[in-house]
Structures are given as structure tokens and as C-alpha cells.
């Protein structure tokens, strides 16, 4: 046999990027399905549109950069980014939002920095923030959950709303019949109007459950996907645990100090994009810290930031901003937290 001389690591596992990406995409599908069940076909259409645009944009940039197109497209990272953008956008948002966002994510955030593995920021979250800053009204109007408002948009109706901006006949009353603020947003508005959290939670959008109609199921589905990723060792537990733990502790402290003005820890864990962030967004290995302790800290930082932005910030959900800010801190975390090399005693 041939002896190869190379530097460490000596034990390798041939896990192709493609296999990892496929597993993550697969794990996100239950969440997407639940989202479609509660909020109509919109999310599904957004995801398809985002994937088409992402592949087109990536191929165009790769051609400009003189790289191999087919091999790079095959790693499916663009599809994952598109999927995350698609599920993060409001289901009935007009088509140009997802097109602008996806092109921005792939061309500016990912490829201009050098492509997969080189980007400083999570492309999907950067795109989300771009859209949130550019189109605040459209981005904070979410489709009404099943059983509230008008009937859920069917496939064709959702297509019509997304592409023409005009409601199908069933929605002639205007977009307000099928869309409303998210539970997080409603709670925030109510609290600012002087209602207590308990009073706000009586509203129909929270649907008797303490976290909001539909949202708890969406989050549970993403949690299930996340557990699959952990079990298949596609992701490590550090980031997700750090994120959920920090969010839980922060909201517990807030809730204990002033239950009237703060949502409960459970509400924070199972509403908005918490689980999606914990298992699918923050765990992006490119933009996270690299050491284990570093990742724990990285996740905790995101958790604290999500809580701070949700509670004290101007936007209803803070996942995207929290992830981007933590992305900025990742090099600093890596600088200060270095795993001790075997046999090395450190500075003492």
C-alpha cells in the first residue's frame, strides 16, 4: 500500500458537501410542510421560486468568474439558501421580494466574497434583513393561519396573489382578509399599547394555545428536523443548545421579573423562527465559530440577541439580525477561544 505523507488531520471522513446539504434540506421539509398546512401554498411557491432564481444566479456568477458550473451547483448549497429564504418570507409576499432577496444572497453575500466557504454572513439571513429593511410593510404581514380570517389560499390562488399582487376573486376584499401580523408582532404591539401579556394572549391569533395558532406546530416540526440532524451527526449540539438555552434563560428572567410585560419562555421558544434559527440557520458551519466552546458561546450570543431584539427592539422577530451580528463576532470568538492543542500547556 502507498504511504502518503501529509499534515494533520490524518483521520478523514469523506463526507461530501452535497450529502450534508441534502440532509439539511431533507430535515427542513417537515417544517415546510407544516407551514404550508397552516398558512397555505404560499411558502411552497416561494421556495420553488427561490430555488429557481438561486440556481440561475449562481450559474451566472460562476460563468462570470470562470468556475466550473455543474460541479459547484451540484453541492446544493444554493438550494439550501433558497429554501431558507423561501420559508422565512411571508407566504403571500409578492414575487419580486423573493427574487431580489435570493439574487442578493447568492450574488452579493455569497459569490462576491468567494463562494461557498468564504462568505462572512449567512446569505439567507442577509437577504432577509435586506428585504426587511427595504420593504418593512410587506415583510411583516404574514398569511393568516388556518381557521382565522378568510379561507386559506389554495395553490392557484396563492400563485395569483404572489405573481399579480391582486387577490383572486375569493380575496376581493383585499390582502387584509388573508394576512395579518404574526403572534410575535401582535404581542409587541399590544404591549406597547399598555395591554398586559395575559390580555394580549386572549386574542384569536393565539388560538388558545399559549404561543399562537400554527406556530407551535411549525416550530415543533423544525425541532424534529433538528433532532434528525443531530442524530445523523450532520450538525453538532453546541450552537443549537447555546441558542435555545440562552433564549430560555433570558426569557425566564424577564418573565419572572415582570410577567405582565414579557412573554413566557415557552412562547419565546416556540414562536417565530426560533427552532428554524437554532437548527438550520445558526448552525451554518461557514459563518459560525469553529471551536466547540466557541460555538456554545456563538449560539448563546444569538439567543441573547434574539431575546433582546424581540423584547426591546423595533422589529417583531430578531433572528436575522441576531444571526448577522453573531456572524460578525465569530472571528473574534475564534481569536479568543482556541482549543488547547494536545500536549500543549498554554500560557501559564
Amino acid at each position: 500500500m502507498a504511504f502518503r505523507i501529509s499534515s494533520s488531520p490524518h483521520v478523514r471522513k469523506d463526507t461530501a458537501t452535497q450529502a450534508v446539504m441534502q440532509k439539511v434540506i431533507l430535515a427542513a421539509l417537515p417544517g415546510l410542510a407544516v407551514q404550508c398546512y397552516f398558512f397555505g401554498w404560499g411558502s411552497f411557491i416561494q421556495v420553488l421560486l427561490a430555488i429557481a432564481v438561486a440556481l440561475g444566479a449562481e450559474a451566472a456568477v460562476l460563468k462570470l468568474r470562470g468556475r466550473t458550473i455543474k460541479e459547484t451547483l451540484n453541492d446544493q448549497s444554493a438550494i439550501l439558501t433558497a429554501l431558507l429564504i423561501g420559508v422565512a418570507l411571508p407566504p403571500l409576499a409578492p414575487w419580486y421580494l423573493v427574487v431580489i432577496g435570493t439574487i442578493f444572497a447568492i450574488v452579493i453575500v455569497k459569490q462576491l466574497y468567494g463562494g461557498l466557504g468564504q462568505n462572512l454572513f449567512n446569505p439567507a439571513m442577509a437577504a432577509y434583513v435586506l428585504l426587511l429593511v427595504s420593504f418593512p410593510v410587506l415583510m411583516t404581514t404574514w398569511a393568516a393561519p388556518l381557521g382565522l380570517g378568510a379561507d386559506n389560499a389554495g395553490f392557484v390562488d396563492a400563485l395569483k396573489v404572489i405573481f399579480s399582487g391582486v387577490g383572486a376573486p375569493a380575496f376581493a376584499l383585499g390582502i387584509d382578509g388573508v394576512s395579518m401580523a404574526t403572534p410575535l408582532d401582535t404581542l409587541k404591539t399590544d404591549l406597547s399599547m399598555g395591554l398586559t401579556a395575559t390580555e394580549s394572549l386572549q386574542k384569536p391569533i393565539f388560538g388558545g394555545s399559549s404561543t399562537g395558532e400554527g406556530w407551535v406546530w411549525v416550530n415543533l416540526a423544525y425541532l424534529a428536523g433538528g433532532i434528525y440532524l443531530l442524530a445523523s451527526k450532520t450538525i453538532r449540539w453546541h450552537i443549537s443548545t447555546g441558542l435555545l438555552g440562552a433564549l430560555f434563560v433570558c426569557s425566564l428572567v424577564g418573565f419572572a421579573l415582570s410577567p405582565d410585560t414579557h412573554a413566557s419562555p415557552l412562547f419565546n421558544l416556540f414562536s417565530g423562527a426560533t427552532m428554524l434559527a437554532a437548527f438550520f440557520i445558526a448552525t451554518d458551519p461557514v459563518t459560525a465559530a469553529t471551536s466547540r466552546r466557541g460555538r456554545l458561546l456563538f449560539g448563546a450570543l444569538i439567543g441573547v440577541l434574539i431575546y433582546v431584539i424581540r423584547t426591546f427592539g423595533g422589529y417583531p422577530d430578531g433572528v436575522a439580525f441576531a444571526v448577522l451580528l453573531a456572524n460578525l463576532c465569530a472571528p473574534l470568538i475564534d481569536y479568543y477561544i482556541k482549543p488547547r492543542a494536545y500536549g500543549h500547556r498554554g500560557h501559564s
Binding site: I100, I108, L130, V133, S134, F135, P136, V137, L138, G165
Partner: peptide, 16 residues
């Protein structure tokens, strides 16, 4: 335009 593309109007858009 019904919803103006705010990013282009804001300084980050100018940088990009």
C-alpha cells in the same frame, strides 16, 4: 412602484 425599494435609497445601498 407601490413599495419603494428602500435599500437603494439608504446609505448601505449606496455602498453596494
Amino acid at each position: 412602484v407601490d413599495n419603494s425599494f428602500l435599500l437603494a435609497m439608504l446609505p448601505p445601498g449606496a455602498f453596494i
